[in-house]
């Protein structure tokens, strides 16, 4: 067993990156590995409420994120500075996130066996 951290820093609805990354995350979880997520930079928009991706003919990734609970993915983190610089508060997000400060990020990452940035 390895502890996985996925760092999500890409903006949503910009090609298929987010959707394909979600496929990896769910496959890792299906292998019964503990998974945590960290949203950084523009990645914080991935979990913003009220996305209307169907208007640009893209799959609604909100539903996939919400389904993560079924896969036992509960540890969702976001960087305080990333939220602030993009004008977001935890209340604007559809997933409950634990906030961590930028200065804590490197120590936080060290707790994991596997760190995947996409």
């Amino acid at each position: 067993m390895k502890k996985f951290l996925f760092i999500l820093s890409q903006s949503p609805h910009d090609g298929f990156w987010v959707q394909e990354t979600l496929d990896i995350i769910l496959t890792v979880a299906a292998f019964d590995q503990p998974v945590s997520l960290l949203f950084l930079d523009q990645g914080v928009f991935q979990i913003k409420k009220k996305q209307n991706s169907e208007l640009i003919n893209e799959k609604n990734t909100t539903a996939i994120f919400k389904a993560m609970e079924i896969y036992d993915i509960h540890d969702v983190f976001s960087e305080v500075e990333s939220l602030q610089s993009h004008g977001l508060k935890p209340g604007d997000l559809f997933l409950p996130v634990k906030e961590i400060f930028r200065k804590e990020v490197s120590l936080f990452i060290n707790k994991f066996d596997m760190v995947c940035g996409n």
Binding site: K2, F4, I24, G117
Partner: peptide, 18 residues
């Protein structure tokens, strides 16, 4: 993707080139 996850679990080092 199962092949990717298996490789992640088997390897001593996993590296992404992007």
């Amino acid at each position: 993707l199962g092949q990717l996850v298996e490789a992640m679990l088997e390897a001593d080092r996993f590296i992404i080139f992007r």
